[in-house]
Nucleic acid binder design. Structure first.
Length: 594
RNA sequence: GCCAACGUAGCUCAGUGGUAGAGCAGCUGUUUCGUAAACAGCAGGUCGGCAGUUCAAUCCUGCCCGUUGGCUCCA
């Protein structure tokens, strides 16, 4: 949207009649315009503030200011009020082109704008945009509404520190986030959506559902309660089932290793800042942040021939990574976690099949778990890396080829790869739309080299295998966090920590309920009999809040008929069933993972 | 790591320069109930930690720990 004329919404054209592209353009302009009005208000209230950038973003906008002191929540109110004046005045947005010299003269007191100006390609126009009858002007490439009065709904949401150009070596600016919409209703809907998402926050639900908790004694490291552990194990069991189908073998490896191993693997050079070290008997050990070196040792423990390959070794080992303090977040970014990790040792020729088969398994798992849409990203060589340029060239080429041939859409990101190889990452959004990397498949030409891994080829020569690191869930902790948000904590029957609660209506029904409970339990169903001294209504409510899939109610009528009244957590009442019928129904549903 | 906010009972939160309260949960008792909260009583807190200011600090100040929001969707 370079150097576009200001947009006036013709009176007869309704927002809802615009095409998706036009809607996006309209909202971008609206939000960028609001950012300008924000900048004007800040300039008025804080004359020392220097303007930097203020782009539209998804659902809103931000503007970064260089100010001596951070904004307070109260400042936001004042700024919002000031913005109102400008919008009420309903002045025109206008743009004018200047020469570079003139522009430089106008922004010379603002190093940030000078930098921006210097970054504008020589063949591009330099423009300034203004409103409030010229009282406010900002170096800007354009893309506005026609008038300030076109801003119908806006709200400042939060402040945050943000580095200039996102680089922590640069000065920290103060960012104000806001949102703006084509109508008050649209904004209301958005704020409502945010509220709803908050209810699905996995940290909140984790508490409420008794799944896990955190304690400062082990920062960013979850404690899983019995129910949470049950769900984690459910996820692991499912992977193990898939492993049976896709030809994996499981191994188990140590937790801490002499630092010599990390020297050999390259982690000491490339990853030490994220590792934990312990010294025992004057020898230094590193706690594993990844399983791969141990996997390489397992491979190297025996001699192999091409007939053994591909060898797929799964390792559910616990990993520890010392993440920077500011980046940890609930279950989605922790310091101690488990992955559904596996290393595939194969020949160059087998890479394509292995990755394709992995992506197929991943798709099967994600469909089962209800992640119907996920995003693929191809990450290419980072600055800090091991291995030769030739190795990187061929590894990147291999992944690109596979993705192109598969026909699925993906984005390529340079500089995002692991230090030992390029990778394909799988991303899924959480409740408020933040993307989290879950699955991953990474090529590694370096590990086999470093551990001198070999296999005997058909012609008797010794060859180096390739290693593919891969995980579907990635971190099980993170996966669970995102899964909780997707499901609002309502796990499918097969994963639910408690699959059914048996509810007696009065004390005289308790014995019958216990018998029912015992029978279902021995059939392998996770069932709880609520024999507490509460009224039935309270028990139903309790089970409902705990998102238990089924409530089995028994009173005089049921005992008489030898049945159970079945209620689902969606509030539906199914026809009464015998215990045997309930058991059959549940077991089938569990087996199908439906 | 950096910027900002926050940290009070198991949980969610109120509150004050004179050593603290509610609801829920818990325990005890009463009640025996038909699909989202019966009633009563009891118990529960070094107010995140350490210093400092003060006659007196949960409240003010500093440091530390932890949590939360954010830290390139580029004029």
């Amino acid at each position: 949207m370079h150097n576009k004329e200001p947009l006036a919404m013709a009176d007869r054209v309704k927002f809802k009649d615009l095409s998706p592209e036009e809607k996006q353009d309209y909202r971008d302009r609206l939000r960028h315009s609001t950012a300008h009005v924000l900048a004007e208000a800040v300039t008025k209230l804080f004359p020392d503030a220097q303007l930097t950038i203020g782009p539209p973003i998804e659902d809103g906008f931000y503007y970064d200011f260089a100010v001596p002191e951070a904004f307070t929540p109260d400042d936001l109110n004042k700024i919002e009020k000031e913005m109102r004046n400008s919008i009420k005045a309903n002045t025109e947005f206008s743009e004018r082109e200047t020469s570079r010299d003139e522009a430089l003269e106008l922004v010379r007191d603002n190093q940030y704008k000078v930098e921006i100006l210097e970054g504008i390609p020589a063949d591009e126009r330099v423009t300034f945009c203004s409103h409030s009858d010229g009282a406010f002007e900002d170096l800007c490439r354009g893309g506005h509404m026609a008038r300030t009065g076109d801003i119908k709904a806006y709200k400042l949401l939060s402040t945050a520190g943000a580095y200039w150009r996102g680089d922590e070596n640069n000065a920290m600016l103060q960012r104000i986030y806001g949102t703006a919409w084509e109508s008050r209703d649209a904004q209301k809907d958005y704020l409502k959506r945010l509220e709803e998402a908050e209810k699905r926050d996995h940290r909140k639900l984790g508490r409420q559902l008794g799944l896990f908790f955190f304690d400062p004694i082990a920062p960013a490291s979850p404690f899983f309660l019995p129910k949470g552990a049950q769900v984690m194990n459910g996820l692991i069991e499912y992977v193990k089932e898939l492993y049976g189908k896709y030809g994996y073998q499981e191994v188990m490896t140590p937790q801490i290793f002499n630092t010599d191993l990390w020297k050999k693997s390259g982690h000491l050079d490339a990853y030490a800042e994220n590792m934990y070290f312990v010294e025992v008997d004057e020898r230094e050990f590193g706690v594993k942040p990844m399983n791969c070196p141990a996997g390489a040792m397992i491979y190297a423990a025996d001699s192999h021939s091409y007939r053994d390959l591909p060898m797929r070794l799964a390792d559910f080992g616990r990993l520890h990574r010392n993440e920077r303090s500011g980046v940890t977040h609930g279950l989605t970014r922790v310091r101690s976690f488990v992955q559904d990790d596996a290393h595939i040792f194969c020949t160059l020729d087998q890479i394509g099949d292995e990755i394709n088969s992995f992506l197929q398994m991943l798709n099967e798992a994600y469909e089962t778990l209800g992640f119907e849409s996920y995003r693929l990203e191809l990450s290419l060589r980072p600055e800090k890396r091991v291995g030769s340029e030739e190795m990187w060239d061929s590894a990147e080429a291999a992944l690109t080829e596979i993705l192109d041939a598969s026909g699925v859409e993906y984005e390529a990101e340079s500089g995002e790869g692991a230090f030992y190889g390029p990778k394909i990452d799988i991303f899924v959004p959480d409740a408020i739309g933040r993307d989290w990397q879950l699955g991953t498949v990474q090529l590694d030409f370096s590990l086999p080299e470093r551990f001198d891994l070999e296999y005997a080829a058909e012609d008797g020569s010794r060859q180096r295998p390739v290693v593919i690191h891969r995980a579907m869930y990635g971190s099980l902790e993170r996966f669970l966090g995102v899964l909780i948000e997707h499901l609002s904590g309502a796990f499918p029957l097969w994963l639910a920590p408690v699959q059914a609660v048996v509810v007696p209506i009065a004390d005289r029904h308790i014995d019958y309920c216990h018998n029912v409970g015992d029978e279902l339990e021995s059939a392998g169903i996770r069932v709880v009999v609520d024999d507490s001294n509460d009224r039935m209504n309270a028990k139903i409510r309790q089970a409902q809040l705990q998102k238990v899939p089924y409530m089995l109610v028994a009173g005089d009528q049921e005992i008489e008929a030898g049945t159970l009244a079945v209620r689902t957590r969606t509030g539906e009442n199914i026809d009464p069933m015998t215990v045997a019928e309930v058991s059959t129904k549940f077991l089938r549903q569990i087996a199908e993972r439906s």
